Amino acid sequence: MKQSLVFTAIGKDKTGIVSELTKLVWQFGCNIDDSRMGIFGDQFSIIMLVSGTKSAINQLEVRLPLLAHSMQLLTIIQRTHSLGMELSDDQVTVEFSGKDAPGILKEVTEFFARRDLDLISLRSKADKRTEKISSQLIFKLSDEISLETLKPEFNHLCEQLSISGKLLHI
């Protein structure tokens, strides 16, 4: 029976971190089901969902902190269950951009949370030089909300926030 764990690692950015982490996952015959990484200032951050046999996950759970310590990374490791949140027909991608201002991302995420839509993925970047924000979010649609209902409401929100936005059905 497959088991899953999610881990987060953060530390000073240096070449080879992802290579070492993925090598360890591979050594135990585990699979990387999902991952996100980024560089924030001079700090590296990664979150990874890994699956494998019970024995493999047990071994990875023991060895991962040792590798992370040797690379001066802080880690959090947690067992989890796969929820089958792969890309499917009931998901929508939200993209928006515009002049950056405090609260824009809060307003957009709150808009979808009030409609009980599950946020699956979020990527947002504010460019200090141009003072622009660019974001992409992926939500799981509910049976009660349709894309046709969301579009005009989201367009109205974009007008209120003075941003450009669009909804794309995946």
Rank of each mutant, 00 (worst) to 15 (best):
W26G: 13
Q27K: 06
Q27M: 05
F28E: 14
C30W: 01
N31A: 02
I32R: 00
D33I: 08
D33K: 02
S35C: 06
R36A: 12
R36P: 11
R36M: 09
G38K: 03
I39T: 13
I39P: 02
F40M: 13
F40L: 15
F40I: 15
G41H: 01
G41F: 00
D42A: 05
Q43Y: 07
F44S: 05
F44D: 12
M48L: 02
V50F: 02
S51N: 13
S51L: 04
G52T: 10
S55R: 04
I57N: 04
E61Y: 00
L64N: 07
P65W: 01
P65G: 07
L66M: 02
L66S: 07
L66I: 07
L67A: 11
L67V: 12
A68Y: 03
A68K: 03
H69S: 15
H69I: 08
S70K: 12
M71I: 07
L73F: 03
I77F: 00
Q78N: 06
L83I: 13
L83E: 15
G84Q: 01
M85Q: 14
L87H: 12
D89C: 00
Q91P: 07
Q91K: 12
T93V: 14
T93M: 03
V94K: 00
E95S: 13
F96I: 15
S97N: 10
S97K: 13
G98H: 06
K99S: 13
A101G: 15
P102S: 08
P102C: 05
I104G: 01
L105C: 10
L105E: 05
L105G: 08
V108G: 02
T109E: 06
E110I: 10
E110S: 13
E110F: 01
F111M: 08
F111L: 05
F112S: 11
F112K: 09
A113Y: 09
A113S: 15
R114D: 15
L117N: 07
L117V: 09
L119H: 05
L119W: 05
I120R: 02
R123A: 10
S124D: 06
D127V: 11
R129S: 13
R129L: 11
T130D: 04
E131Y: 02
K132R: 09
K132C: 04
I133H: 00
S134M: 10
S135G: 12
S135Y: 01
Q136D: 08
Q136G: 11
L137V: 14
L137H: 09
I138F: 01
I138L: 07
F139Y: 15
F139H: 02
L141F: 03
L141T: 14
S142I: 07
D143K: 03
E144V: 09
E144P: 09
T149L: 00
L150W: 03
L150T: 11
K151E: 13
P152I: 02
E153N: 14
F154P: 11
F154Y: 07
H156N: 13
H156G: 08
C158K: 03
E159I: 12
L161F: 03
L161D: 05
S162Q: 13
S162C: 09
S164D: 14
G165P: 09
G165M: 06
